[in-house]
Write a protein that binds this DNA or RNA. Sequence first.
DNA 1: CCAAAGTAGTCAACCAAGTTGTCCAAGCCT
DNA 2: AGGCTTGGACAACTTGGTTGACTACTTTGG
Lengths: 149, 149
Amino acid sequence: MEPVPMLLAMTYRAMGDQFHDRLKQIGLEPLRPAHGYVFRFLKEKRATTVDIGQHLGVTKQAAAKIVNELDEWGYVLREPHPTDKRAQYVTLTTKGRDYLKFADNLWSDLEGEMAEAIGADVLATIRQGLAGYLRHVHGEDQPGLRPVW
Amino acid sequence: MEPVPMLLAMTYRAMGDQFHDRLKQIGLEPLRPAHGYVFRFLKEKRATTVDIGQHLGVTKQAAAKIVNELDEWGYVLREPHPTDKRAQYVTLTTKGRDYLKFADNLWSDLEGEMAEAIGADVLATIRQGLAGYLRHVHGEDQPGLRPVW
DNA sequence: CCAAAGTAGTCAACCAAGTTGTCCAAGCCT
DNA sequence: AGGCTTGGACAACTTGGTTGACTACTTTGG
């Protein structure tokens, strides 16, 4: 029997590949997964580069590189932290929010197809099961999102 | 709502981290995921370096590096291909099979804990759901195992 | 049957995405 | 005040892959 992590890795890759292919097909420049996860993170909370690194599970230097790219490409900008003169908040530009909105739609499509393939109830169970496991191993503190290969 | 791939990545990482930690705790040298996947692949079928690369989703050169490591460490050895003088079969040594057996037990333990945390039926559903999705997108041909970050 | 095309493996150069280490300026804490 | 900590930036390096080229062998099609 195949171990679960293998299934997780394969499914992660399969979905990611589909997402990537369709983005390219449509003509939108396909960023890496990490970029998308940053968008999603920034939609929820104001965050510094350090926060982003923590969330992704990489060092602050690696996070800084990603933020630099997103800045150059016009998806985010840095604004001064109101109270801490060292820190900068990274915030989404309109272009960034648009990209995220578009990507979210595409994800819904893909999940819809997945639901059709395996059953909406099964998909819901997967969702809740994985979330439950994550809550079980780490309490409430985020684990670091990046899969280590 | 969090997109499914994010849950997959986080769970993959969480399980991998636990596996890694316990291996180290016990004193067994913790190889990288790819090495373990090679073991498992070799248990099932005789394979060349090219086959392994295909299975992992990397180039044959990258696969060759991994095989070299495993060879140096004594987990596999190369034997001549019976009919094709260019090719070599990579096969597990006793040390390799022992490692795999040990790792499999550890995985069972972890999956047992997962089942306890979220319910054995839920875990079974996850298993079948993901496998079903993979069958749906790629027919029978393997997709490449490596998650691309 | 033989020539052309394809394939397994290896070597080497390169690249991307991370790491560690160091530093400064600013904040925090008694 | 003073000492420890932290956000951010710069640089050097490591890792795990890639592409490209080449040899020896195999397969295929005229």
